[in-house]
């Protein structure tokens, strides 16, 4: 059975799972941000949150202090996280450019108005 770890949270070391929970919360918040914000920039922020949520998982899986077996990703985890950060930066730049372009063309940042591709 699943033991609720809350009781020992402060005096026992935390594990991968706890990181994953934080990651999951950020991921879900990000996804919801994307799904509910009408402002394109809000959507972008959601993406950042999602990427960060994923990053937390990579770091947690890469860390060898958080689990009691040796199956960590090791440095690979951190390296992937680094790449994610860099790609996030690139993505942000391009996305921002798209948003600005959209803003110039439509005079709006409302993603609901970007429906030209609908079937």
């Amino acid at each position: 059975m699943l033991q609720l770890p809350l009781a020992h949270l402060l005096n026992e070391p935390i594990g991968v799972a706890h990181f994953m929970v934080v990651g999951a919360v950020m991921f879900v918040c990000g996804a919801l941000c994307m799904a509910t914000k009408r402002n394109a920039l809000g959507v972008l922020m959601g993406i950042e949150l999602v990427l960060n949520g994923a990053n937390i998982n990579f770091i947690a899986f890469g860390s060898k202090y958080l689990r009691n077996d040796a199956n960590t990703l090791g440095l690979d985890g951190q390296l992937i996280a680094l790449f994610v950060i860099v790609l996030a930066a690139a993505e942000a730049a391009v996305a921002l450019a798209i948003v600005l372009n959209f803003y110039n063309n439509h005079d709006s940042v409302d993603v609901d108005r970007a429906k030209q591709l609908q079937g």
């Binding site: 699943l2 770890p5 026992e12 070391p13 935390i14 594990g15 991968v16 799972a17 706890h18 994953m20 929970v21 990651g23 999951a24 919360v25 991921f27 879900v28 996804a31 202090y65 958080l66 689990r67 009691n68 077996d69 199956n71």
Partner: peptide, 18 residues
Amino acid sequence: LLVTLCWVAFSVPAWRGI
């Protein structure tokens, strides 16, 4: 999704920490 993810996180004993 959140419930699923959290459930997954805690379903592997090795991930609970040392």
